[in-house]
Design a binder for these strands. Structure first.
Lengths: 226, 226, 226, 226
DNA sequence: GATGAATGAGACTTCATTCAT
DNA sequence: AATGAATGAAGTCTCATTCAT
């Protein structure tokens, strides 16, 4: 990818000014660089280089490094939220719906390590960029509603417990996948194994789905949740 | 936080020559700075300043920034692993032991946000420092053994499922707490609430303990784990 | 010398944007500074200052200090080799040709103390920069050929000995001048005289030409040169 | 040599304070380090390390880095001048005496690359340390006298020319060897050969002796020197 | 819109030297 | 005599951003 970009450098074809393509290239390069190095560790120079364009265009199109980071967040947040909407959970029985949601959440993180990486950094900066992005703020209410509806449906059908808070359930679903991917390297190191293999990812996926569905099951007698 | 540190600056209490105290002060300052800004975003200058010592002493005592980061990781990893050993889970019934472990894991992260922050960064660097630290490598086998024994005891007593992998269980326990703390700011922002309050932390704690113990319960008929 | 350079600083003549001039100014300043202080003793800051430009432009135009040193070597090597080619030795009788070559070699070192100084340093670094410069590697074969042809012509004409290796002859020609200039200060000090005067330089020049031509003369009975 | 020093590090035997041995070790280490890196490039820390002693002892025994450099020069100058005195040239016929002197000069440089390296640096600093060392100043008059006597004897015996200045002859003798060793790396690089082999050193040695003796021979008709 | 040159600020690190023991 | 800790100054290099074309 980078090599291609470098080779295309100076190619007369691209001389045709295509601002939209330039913008897209910069955004993709930014997401990759920010995911690799973090906000502080990323270099505007390197982002421009990855995109195959002049550094000044970063400023032309995005303003500055922080604004570019916000744009990157909007992009990756937008993707996951859009795909979640396409799951059509309402068309499925509650258990199947929940299984689909958990599976999707896991798979999306597996396929999009940049999401994990960007969120890590954004939290280090106290969600500064998210808070200043109306676009991101707007895209999250459907998610809570979706989980709430699924939980309610499952409760009505007698397959889910009735006392579950949708936000905490979402955090648990996300956390069970997120921690595995976010901390894959340290976990592999301290447990002296390699968790970054297809086999281990697949085992983890089954564990997470099983874990969530088990936890949501109604119980005869459970330990009092304090 | 930083202001406090700066105010202690030049405090007359500091003895003339106490290399061990200098080392400790630098390490504490490093943990705080790395947690705040990450490895790339941290400034050696600022670390020395927080410790109230000359910048060059960082190099005298620790070698360089990376070595200092490794020392910081060894410190925070050492603390959590040492405290886990003091839980004496073997003295408790399996369910109570598991509850204690989950509660401790949650509380430790609540009280030690620097652990979360350092691990995030360490993973960005592919666990480079952990891998080069024999000290860290050595401290983790007791943890897996502890979980494994608790799970086995619970299974023997009929209170836990029998098919749980201890490493995956550990990752779930840690992940349920970790994600909440690591992503507290973005979660608060996107869900338009404040999850950084005593009330919400406490709710989350109950949820996590409940979630784990429910998931570990033996089931009459469970959903097929895919 | 340095003072002069500093006084030219900020001269209004310098055009606003002339990258080629900037490059040239930096290169000239680098040659002067490296000659004065050596590679290790030179300061990038001072080079930029001498060139009347911003320090960062060194990195912009040359990469780093070592690359700049290599560029300086390429420059000074290029000059002497180019001028040697202009001597047109082939147009002269062998003895006159040799006299011209020896005289030129002496004069060039006299006029270019920076060449002596840079070569000293380059040898300290085991010719690291020369070895990594294809440009320098390429410019030396004509030199050996030129000496070889002159020696052969002289031998054919009966005015030169027939057993002389051109590389050793070149090293002798260069060495007789080089040592005088390279060690002028210590020689002046230990012999309690001043060898850095026009008179002494001129005496040395005659001595060297005489020495070389005498040594090259065919002999009735000489010590067997093995 | 360096390895040995490092391995002896921490040896309990040396605990016995032996200031004279410490001084010698530091001086030897300094000569090696200055030869390797030059005055500017050498590190006091590294010299102490090579000597297996604490850095502060450099200051204790020698004052500072410059004084140490002067001591190093005194040492290497002292050695060559002392050995020259032992040549007993007066006991030999003029030609044999000259051959012995040239051979010795060549061999000494071959065996003492540190002399070449230190002189290079000393000249860069305009013989500052030599000039401030009465010890070095004092040791050079016998050398000129020695050469002058040998030349005079050879002239009297009809085997040497009569018009040779002893200082210029000394500079030629030294220069023919010095340049070969001082510039061995760059010469090897530009002539695309390896002049740092026993074979090439030996060839050069013969060339130099031959060259000097030929040049000193009386001539029937020589080219007019100038 | 697009580019390479230029810059002010500052980052990490080094180093000769001095201090306290 | 000998040591490790400590420091002020400075050195190489980086980087987000702006300028001139």
């Amino acid at each position: 990818m980078e090599e291609t970009a470098r080779m295309n450098d100076k190619r007369p074809i691209r001389q045709k000014r295509d601002p939209e393509a330039t913008r897209r290239a910069l955004l993709a390069a930014a997401i990759a660089e920010f995911a690799d190095k973090g906000l502080a560790g990323s270099r505007v120079d390197e982002i421009a280089h990855r995109a195959g364009v002049n550094k000044q265009l970063v400023y032309h199109h995005f303003g500055n490094k922080d604004d570019l980071f916000r744009a990157a967040l909007e992009q990756v947040y937008g993707e996951i939220r859009a795909r979640e909407q396409s799951l059509n959970l309402a068309d499925l029985p509650a258990v199947a719906a929940m299984e689909r949601l958990v599976g999707f959440s896991f798979d999306h993180l597996a396929e999009h390590p940049e999401l994990v990486a960007l969120l890590n950094d954004e939290n280090r900066h106290e969600a500064r960029h998210v808070k200043s992005s109306p676009q991101i703020q707007a895209m999250h209410s459907p998610l809570v509603r979706m989980i709430d509806e699924t939980l309610a449906r499952g409760a009505r059908d007698g397959v889910f417990r009735t006392d579950m808070d949708p936000i905490n359930v979402y955090i648990s679903i996300a956390g069970l996948a997120y921690f595995f991917f976010a901390n894959n390297h340290t976990l592999s190191a301290i447990f002296d194994t390699n968790l970054d293999t297809a086999r281990e990812v697949s085992r983890r996926r089954r564990h997470v789905i099983d874990f969530v569905l088990s936890a949501l099951q109604p119980r005869e007698v459970g330990p009092s949740p304090n």
